[in-house]
């Protein structure tokens, strides 16, 4: 593939033909704000934050969906771009609950990050807000629709798992929300708690319930481990504080690593000092279960015991 030369914010860059402006900028350290973009997901250009100005075009273009062209001159922070970007961000803030003080996502939240970067605040108004719909039905995922910015990342990552496609957009316009199957809860839907959606959610709309109230994102330290459950070796962060491993955080499903509940539970059991009880979904109901059941080890453990006892009784080493 041939290379393309272009200029972004005064810096020259050469990238492969077909690269998006956003990715080209990233290569020279320019991070264009984006909420709906994810290199592993289909490009939808929905959040409109990654708009840039291209010389010779009087319309702003989204850098995630616009491909580089030879000789292109791009401005990612021109006055027009910044003013428009601020308005778009403000529109999101105007519908978002002012809950950063207690939100589990605080510190990790992209809406918060960009609001800080562009100096925007929540403002009082008597217009519409998103209805306060909270799905607490799952022991693994907390779904808070009021915080949702409808970027659709969760829908797209869920759709990548064949036979799954649990999450979907429902209603339209301002009333749009993310639904599970045909308006089920996380519990009654076909969701298998793989938590892919949680890993891609840029805000506090989908959070890992097993991290709630344990620690803030900036506390403690973390290291990345690979799951040993299967050959994919999905990545998990082991978060520790005061020399105790407190929680397991799934990393986004990249490079063919799919994520699954069993792997996450396996990692929790392996690393955490005090792992919470596991749950299994049986006929659309979550039920507390044993670790051996949750990890499907029942038969295997019995067999191991049996084999070990045979070994013991025959006196072999």
């Amino acid at each position: 593939m041939s290379d393309v030369k272009l200029t972004i914010d005064g810096q020259k860059v050469t990238v492969a033909n077909g690269t998006s402006i956003l990715e080209a900028a990233k290569q020279i350290g320019i991070k264009i704000p984006a909420l709906c973009y994810d290199p592993n997901l289909e490009v939808v250009a929905a959040c409109r934050l990654c708009i840039v100005e291209i010389e010779g075009s009087n319309k702003l273009q989204t850098s995630c969906s616009t491909r580089v062209k030879e000789g292109m001159v791009v401005h990612t922070e021109s006055e027009k771009v910044v003013e428009t970007r601020k308005d778009v961000l403000q529109l999101l803030l105007d519908s978002h609950p002012n809950d950063c003080l207690t939100c589990q996502k605080a510190g990790d939240c992209f809406l918060q990050k960009y609001a800080y970067e562009y100096d925007l605040k929540f403002r009082e108004h008597d217009g519409a807000m998103r209805p306060e719909l909270l799905d607490t039905s799952s022991p693994y995922i907390l779904k808070d629709d009021a915080k949702c910015i409808l970027c659709g990342k969760c829908v797209r990552t869920c759709a990548q798992v064949s036979e799954r496609q649990v999450l979907t957009f429902a209603e339209r316009g301002y009333d749009t929300y993310i639904a599970c199957d045909a308006n089920q809860t996380l519990e009654t839907s076909s969701c298998v708690s793989c938590n892919r959606c949680v890993t891609v959610c840029p805000v506090g709309a989908l959070v890992d319930k097993r991290q709630l109230s344990k620690l803030r994102s900036w506390e403690g330290s973390s290291r990345v481990v690979n799951c040993k459950r299967c050959d994919y070796g999905c990545e998990f962060e082991i978060v520790s504080k005061d020399n105790k491993n407190i929680s397991v955080v799934a990393k986004p499903p990249t490079n063919g690593r799919p994520l699954c509940l069993k792997g996450r539970l396996n990692t929790e059991l392996e690393y955490l000092n005090q792992p919470e009880a596991p749950y299994r979904k049986i006929d659309g109901r979550f039920e507390e279960t044993t670790w051996s059941k949750a990890l499907s080890l029942d038969g295997i453990l019995e067999k191991i015991e049996k084999m070990d006892s045979i070994k013991g009784s025959t006196g072999e080493e």
Binding site: C47, V88, L91, G127, I149, L150, R172, Y174
Partner: peptide
Amino acid sequence: TVDESCGKCVPCREGTKRLLE
């Protein structure tokens, strides 16, 4: 328009609503 916006992009979904308000 507010009624018919699909809800995909922010300026249309959120912006038209505020304009109408």
